[in-house]
Structure formats: C-alpha cells, structure tokens
C-alpha cells in the first residue's frame, strides 16, 4: 500500500489475508510498533470516546495474528481503558473473532436457506471430506479449517463459500475437490 492510509478507513482493512495465516499461532504485540500505534491513533481519532474503537482494534488483532488471543484482548483493553473482561465479552459475542488460531485457509460454507436449497449441506460435507476435518477443527497440516456459516449475503450465487477474504460463488459439491486442490497448490507453491 503505497498511499497513506486515510483515518476514515483505518479501522476497515481486510484482515484475513492468506500471508498472515503463516504458522497460525503467532501472537505479536499490537501496539509496540510504530505501525500499530499509528493505526491505534488513526482509529481512535474517528470516535468521540475510546470504546467505539474496540471492534476495529479486534479486527486489527486478527489482521496481525489471524486470531484474537487473551493476551491481545488484554492489550486492547489497556489501550482503550477497558477491563479485559469487557473485551472478552464483546469478542465472544461476534462469531468472526477466532478465539484460537485457525488454519491457513478458513473455509466458511454457507448452509443458510438459499444455499441450503442449492445443496449447501452437501458442499459442506464435501469440504470436510476433502480436508479430512471435522467442523471447526484445523487439519493436522495446519492448512484448513472448515466451518458452517450463516448467510454470507450473496444468496443469488448459492452455494456461497468464503475462503479467508474471498467469496467463491455458485459452488457445487462437484467443484469442491478442485477448489481444495487449488488451495493445496497455492500453499505448496509458497512453501517451496
């Protein structure tokens, strides 16, 4: 990103980029770097009080580490003058905060009504089979976590699957092996 990040969008950066998933277990401090402090300040400048920065900062924790550890919650609590308990309460309310590390590819399969009507349940089954995992569990190689998702807001393109940040639409069970193969290839390509 060459251009400077405008404060209006500082809290709205996509955060599930694949590169960041790395080992999946990093837990870097958030506000010890200049970049982190700058992000904190930019985000805070958009609200009349500290607390509204909470969701953007939890998002930032995911951007940095791919998940939100209790340590990160404490760090954020400190930055916003909240209790860690209060951050924990908020973080557990929202389903997108990974309270433990997830695989390099977080595969979320919508099985809600429109996708359900278009074999979403079978798509989910197929992803679990292909990755050899159970829902929410990360594959042994650390690559895949498959979860059932609620409506992803793309119902006309059912079945909808979100892989990290990307939407993959019109997925049928038959297409699943190719999708998983492509992810394998991507992962190996980088690892090599």
């Amino acid at each position: 990103m060459s251009e400077e990040l405008h404060p209006s969008v500082a809290g709205a950066q996509p955060y599930m980029r694949e590169e960041r998933q790395g080992s999946g277990t990093t837990d870097e401090p958030l506000f010890e770097s200049d970049e982190g402090r700058e992000r904190l300040e930019k985000i805070r400048s958009r609200y009349p009080s500290a607390r509204p920065a909470l969701l953007p900062l939890l998002n930032y924790a995911q951007e940095k580490n791919g998940w939100v550890s209790t340590r990160a919650m404490e760090e954020i609590a400190g930055a916003l003058d909240l209790t860690p308990a209060c951050v924990h309460s908020v973080a557990t309310f929202y389903t997108m905060y990974n309270k433990r590390p997830v695989g390099r590819y977080l595969i979320q399969v919508c099985t809600n009504i429109s996708c359900h009507l278009n074999r979403g349940d079978d798509v989910l089954e197929r992803f679990l089979e292909e990755t050899g995992t159970r829902p929410g569990e990360t594959s042994e190689n650390g690559l895949f976590t498959v979860v059932e998702a609620e409506c992803l807001g793309a119902c006309g393109f059912a079945t909808v699957v979100q892989i990290n940040e990307d939407y993959v639409e019109n997925v049928t069970p038959e297409k699943v092996p190719d999708i998983v193969d492509a992810l394998w290839a991507r992962a190996e390509g980088r690892d090599a």
Partner: peptide, 22 residues
Amino acid sequence: RDDALIVAQRGHRAYIDTFPGT
C-alpha cells in the same frame, strides 16, 4: 463500578464469566 463480570457468548450459549484465568 468494576467491569469484571460479563456475559460471554450470545443467544442460548450465553453464560456469565470473568476474564479467562481471573
């Protein structure tokens, strides 16, 4: 005035909790 006890999770999975480990 001690925000140390909270509701964790939501819906029918909700329960009362403190910060993990405290």
